[in-house]
Structures are given as structure tokens and as C-alpha cells.
């Protein structure tokens, strides 16, 4: 009974997202139209991608608060390169963004792995360092739309089979993660390391190296999102995506990724991100001031974490035969 409840955590979240859609739709028809839903998804794509990277990190009992700063830094680098050398192909810029993001993520990872510094300290530090570096590079000035090449701005918006490329990238990342997390040894290692680090050692899994991998992947995705964000909004400045790391963590927590590690699914993280995305897009439609958004997502985090903790609470050791579940 408890098990079935647990298994349907994603189902409950899906229900919540759908209920939200129905409520908004019933009052402001047109919100749940396919075209608008696709727009909402597109708008949430970056949050989904970052939440998936964060999911890996949280699965291993760590946290990465530097993702938004990483995004801002890589985004600024691609924008400045594009402005200075419009001839560089977009593909090269994307590869550069992913590469730089990977390096920034790996730096977090190496501090956690080799020096054993608590992840929250490491990423709190790199959060300010990466963001400050954006200022050093740009000298506080903006890279505006007119300075960017057309190709640079067009890529994420190009429509392919009636969806923008940005949405397709998000879908591809989701699909890739769904397979990698459930069906590759590294994917399972994230769960093992977070679930019981002590036991992971006995299984031959290197705890530090696995955490390093999680930070590196999270960094790579943040780098990818750096380009996507800046090109989509066609502007780069120091405060791009300021505080967005908290939205990312919020999406994971709402999606049922346990901060204690070892528990959570790709589907949960995606739904958590979508939940926030739907709220963000529904508020203006419903005529509610966007100033409500922050409080709503804060309340959603608290409710989600309370709910998840309730449903996974252990009654104690299982000793009485009658309390054991066997086949």
C-alpha cells in the first residue's frame, strides 16, 4: 500500500500539473490549447535541462548552487565571441559553451572529490566567483541584440516539426537522461552513492569520482543553457539568470528528488520544472501580478518536501514477520 503510494509520487505530481492546467483553462480558455502548451514547454525548457543536471548532483547527496552563475558566464563568453567574431559558426560556439560549462562544473567536482570540501561551500564560493568573472570579462556592459549575428539568435528559435529547436534539445536531454539514469552503470552509481556511500565502496563504486561526474555533467548542461538562454533572450549581461539556481533546486525538490540522496526520478524532475513553468506562465494570463510567483514557488517547495518526507517515512526496523513484505 505504502509502496504503491510511493511509486505514484510522479503520478500525483502529474495530477497536480494537470489540475493546475484545468483550473487555469476553465477560467481563461485557450491556455491549455496545444499551441500555448508548446509555448509553455518551450519557456520551461532551460529549467528542465538544468533541473536534470541538478538531479544527478542531488542524487549523490550534493548540491550545485553555481549553475546559474555558470550559465551567465558561458552565455556571456559566447555572446562576446559572437559580437567580436561573427564569423565563428554557431556549432562551434555551442561546443565552446558546453566545454567551458564542463570545465566550470569539473572545478566544483574536483574540489568536492579530491579536497573533500562540502559541496554547499564549494558551490557557494564558485557561485560568486563565476558571476564576478562575468563582470570582469564584460566590464559590466551588455551585449545587446543588435551586436549578435542573426544565426546566433536564430538557432534555438528555428522551428522543426512545429516545435522550436530549444524544445527539441530539452526533449533530447530528457530522453537521454531517462535511458542513462536507469540503464547505465554510471546512472545507477549516482543512486548507489547517494543511497549508501559506505556500501557503494563495497560494490566497487568510487564515491568521489561519481560525485565528480555528477558535477561535471551538471556544469556541461549549465554551459549548454548559457548559450540557449542568451541567444533566446538576445541579451547578455552580468545578472543573467540571477537567483535561477534556486528555481532549479526548487524544481528538483518539487519533483521528489530527495535532498538526502539516492531517491528521485527523471520524470519527477521534469514534472517539478513543468509545475513551476505552468505557474509562471499562468499568472499573467490569470491577471495575477507576477510578484506572486516567488511566494508561490516558495510555498510549493515547502509543501512538496513535507509531502515527500511524509510518504517515505520509515516505521522502524522490520523484525516482526507480519510486518515484512515478501513474495
Amino acid at each position: 500500500m505504502i509502496l504503491r503510494f510511493l511509486k505514484s509520487r510522479e503520478a500525483i505530481l502529474l495530477g497536480a500539473v494537470l489540475a493546475l492546467l484545468v483550473i487555469v483553462e476553465s477560467r481563461f480558455s485557450g491556455f491549455a490549447a496545444p499551441g500555448n502548451l508548446a509555448a509553455v514547454f518551450n519557456d520551461t525548457s532551460i529549467l528542465i535541462i538544468l533541473a536534470l543536471g541538478q538531479t544527478l548532483v542531488i542524487l549523490t547527496r550534493c548540491i550545485d548552487l553555481s549553475v546559474a552563475s555558470n550559465l551567465a558566464l558561458t552565455g556571456m563568453v559566447t555572446a562576446m565571441l559572437n559580437a567580436a567574431f561573427p564569423g565563428i559558426p554557431v556549432v562551434v560556439l555551442i561546443a565552446l559553451a558546453v566545454g567551458l560549462g564542463t570545465l566550470l562544473g569539473a572545478f566544483n567536482g574536483i574540489l568536492v572529490w579530491k579536497l573533500d570540501i562540502p559541496p554547499i561551500v564549494v558551490t557557494l564560493g564558485t557561485l560568486t566567483i563565476y558571476r564576478g568573472t562575468v563582470f570582469l570579462l564584460s566590464d559590466g556592459s551588455w551585449v545587446n541584440s543588435h551586436e549578435m549575428s542573426a544565426a546566433y539568435k536564430a538557432f534555438p528559435r528555428a522551428v522543426l516539426f512545429s516545435l522550436p529547436v530549444l524544445s527539441w534539445i530539452a526533449l533530447a536531454v530528457v530522453a537521454g537522461f531517462a535511458v542513462a539514469v536507469t540503464r547505465t552503470p554510471l546512472g545507477r552509481a549516482f543512486y548507489a552513492v547517494g543511497g549508501n556511500p559506505h556500501a557503494a565502496v563495497y560494490t566497487g563504486i568510487d564515491v568521489g569520482r561519481t560525485r565528480f561526474a555528477a558535477f561535471t555533467i551538471s556544469g556541461a548542461l549549465a554551459g549548454l543553457c548559457g548559450y540557449l538562454w542568451v541567444s533566446r533572450y538576445a541579451v547578455a549581461y552580468v545578472d543573467v539568470a540571477g537567483g535561477f539556481e534556486l528555481d532549479v533546486v526548487a524544481a528538483c525538490v518539487i519533483g521528489g528528488i530527495s535532498i538526502a540522496g539516492g531517491m528521485g526520478t527523471v520524470g519527477g524532475a521534469v514534472l517539478g520544472a513543468l509545475f513551476l513553468g505552468v505557474i509562471k506562465n499562468a499568472l499573467p494570463v490569470a491577471g495575477i501580478s507576477p510578484f506572486w510567483q516567488l511566494a508561490i514557488s516558495g510555498a510549493a517547495i515547502i509543501i512538496a518536501v513535507a509531502f515527500n518526507a511524509r510518504s517515505s517515512r520509515q516505521p522502524g526496523h522490520i523484525i516482526l514477520k507480519s510486518a515484512e513484505r515478501t513474495a
Binding site: 535511458v179 536507469t182 540503464r183 547505465t184 552503470p185 545507477r188 543512486y191 548507489a192 543511497g195 549508501n196 559506505h198 556500501a199 563495497y202 560494490t203 566497487g204 563504486i205 539516492g262 531517491m263
Partner: peptide, 26 residues
């Protein structure tokens, strides 16, 4: 104590040397 409470019985048995199918996937 060196097993994983959050994982299922089968994965606890095979973690680290799980049978692989196509494309090397578990």
C-alpha cells in the same frame, strides 16, 4: 548494512555487474 535500502532486491544483487543488453544498456 552494506546493501542499498532504496534499491530493489535484484539491483542489490547485481549492482556493479548487471546483465547488459543492446548498446551495453542494463
Amino acid at each position: 548494512t552494506v546493501l542499498f535500502d532504496d534499491l530493489c532486491v535484484a539491483e542489490n544483487i547485481f549492482l556493479g555487474h548487471a546483465p547488459r543488453g543492446r548498446f551495453g544498456l542494463i
